[in-house]
Amino acid sequence: MEVYGSQFFWLLIVIGIIYFFIAKNMVPKISKTVDDRQKRITDDLAAAQAAQDRAEQIEEDYRVSINNAKSDAVGKVNAAKAEAGKKHEAAVKRADTSIAKKADEADNALKVATATALTEIEAVAAEAAKDIVATVSGTKVTAAQAKKAVKAAF
């Protein structure tokens, strides 16, 4: 019988120590460590998710503002182009008018000069013709006759 008594006694002591010192004391701490780690991982993942969402929001905002700036710039460039075109046209028109005026004046001057030159040439030709006739045929031709012949020749 002493075997059972000893077994009983020492087993209860050992089991008691395991129960009260290890299972009641150490196990909850270990469980807590695991839970804390799990909580930390969950929190960190949530924080990372939030940060990513914020980054995506910032990128989206950036894209919108860039797009706005781009369309703004295109509008401004187009307006400037239209303005420049208008100015250019006006300048060309003004230049055209002045050039046309100058060309008309030059034309008129040319016409006058041509007429003058023709009259002078006729006179010189008549004189020359009178001299040529006198030299060649010895006949005297009046100035009026020479003039008439020259006019006919022209």
């Binding site: 019988m1 002493e2 075997v3 059972y4 008594g5 000893s6 077994q7 006694f9 020492w10 087993l11 050992v14 120590i17 395991i18 010192f21 290890i22």
Partner: peptide
Amino acid sequence: QQINFTNSALWMFVVLGLIY
């Protein structure tokens, strides 16, 4: 009851030590 420290008790304490 006669309570002796037996070889069984000794190995129980070894088990306890190992668990600890």
